[in-house]
């Protein structure tokens, strides 16, 4: 099943973009010396917020599809979706998702060694 692998790639991408935008670009844009090289860099890099938004859009769809396939609770699903909006949270959530899917729905990880045995 490709859904699980897609989810992991998107989670990583969303996480990196969000961390960069909120922890690097935004502080530089607002805190660096006005008009300086760093401030301008922060301002230009802010365009990545748009990239984050669009990747997050796809992430939400894929995460929701995975959630329904794996039969997650509403609460866990919500945490998985919202994780893409809280800096750094998604890296931890992704670990939880990987563990949960491997434990409860190994058939969704068929591209991995553990899944290959069972299928």
């Amino acid at each position: 099943m490709k859904l699980f692998a897609t989810y992991r790639v998107l989670a990583l991408l969303v996480g990196v973009l969000l961390a960069f935008c909120s922890l690097v670009a935004m502080p530089l844009k607002y805190l660096a010396a006005d008009g300086g090289t760093w401030q301008r860099f922060g301002e230009q890099a802010s365009i990545l917020w748009v990239a984050h938004g669009w990747v997050f859009m796809i992430y939400v769809v894929v995460a929701f599809a995975l959630s329904r396939k794996a039969g997650w609770s509403i609460a866990f699903t919500l945490v998985a979706l919202v994780a893409g909006l809280v800096p750094l949270l998604i890296f931890w959530v992704e670990r939880q998702v990987v563990r949960k899917v491997r434990d409860e729905n190994p058939e969704l990880t068929s591209s991995e060694p553990t899944g290959a045995v069972s299928s």
């Binding site: 748009v50 938004g53 669009w54 859009m57 939400v60 769809v61 929701f64």
Partner: peptide, 13 residues
């Protein structure tokens, strides 16, 4: 404009 499209998409979602 891109944000506007995103929000409409989230409404649909």
């Amino acid at each position: 404009l891109l944000y506007a499209i995103e929000w409409v998409f989230f409404a649909a979602f």
